[in-house]
Simulated scan of single mutants.
Amino acid sequence: MASIRSERQRVRLFFAERAAGWETRYPDDTPAYAAAVAALGLPPGGRVLDAGCGTARALPLLRAAVGPAGEVVGVDLTPEMLREAVRLGRRGDGALVEADGARLPLRTGAFDAVLAAGLVHHLPDPAAGLRELARVTRPGGRLALFHPLGRAALAARRGHELRDDDIRAAPRLGPAMSATGWELSLLDDSDECYLALAVRQRH
Rank of each mutant, 00 (worst) to 15 (best):
A170S: 13
L82R: 08
R91G: 07
T24I: 02
R57I: 04
T78Q: 01
T30K: 04
Q9M: 10
S178R: 15
A16N: 11
E7G: 02
A196N: 05
L59A: 11
T108N: 11
Q201C: 14
T55E: 08
L123A: 09
G46N: 02
A58Q: 05
G70I: 02
E161R: 15
L96V: 09
E17Y: 02
L96E: 05
P79F: 14
P27V: 05
P44S: 08
I4L: 13
R168S: 06
A39Y: 00
A144D: 10
P139A: 03
T180S: 12
G150F: 12
L40C: 13
I4T: 14
M177I: 01
T137M: 07
G74Q: 11
D164R: 15
D189V: 11
E132T: 13
R138F: 02
H121K: 05
A153W: 07
P27H: 11
D125Y: 06
E183M: 04
F15D: 04
V136I: 14
H203F: 11
D166P: 13
E71P: 00
G141R: 00
G129E: 06
G181L: 10
D165W: 09
A51S: 10
L119R: 05
G74K: 10
G92V: 09
L96M: 12
V120Q: 00
M81D: 06
A113C: 09
L145D: 10
R90G: 02
L145P: 03
A155N: 09
L13G: 06
M81L: 13
R163F: 05
D188E: 15
P31G: 02
G74I: 04
A38I: 00
R168M: 06
D29E: 13
A152N: 06
A16F: 06
L115A: 03
F146W: 09
A179W: 07
G45M: 02
L13N: 13
G94V: 06
H122P: 07
G118L: 12
L88K: 07
G46S: 01
M177C: 15
G140T: 01
L59Q: 13
A39C: 04
V120R: 00
I167W: 10
A34G: 14
R91K: 13
A85C: 08
E161D: 15
L162V: 11
G174F: 05
S178K: 10
D28S: 14
A155Q: 04
D50S: 09
A36S: 14
G150E: 01
V199L: 14
L195K: 00
F146L: 01
A56E: 07
Y26W: 14
P139I: 01
G70V: 00
E17M: 09
E161H: 14
A156I: 02
V72Q: 01
D93W: 15
H147Q: 04
G92W: 08
T55C: 08
G101V: 11
A198D: 03
E17S: 12
M1D: 07
G74L: 09
I4P: 00
A38W: 03
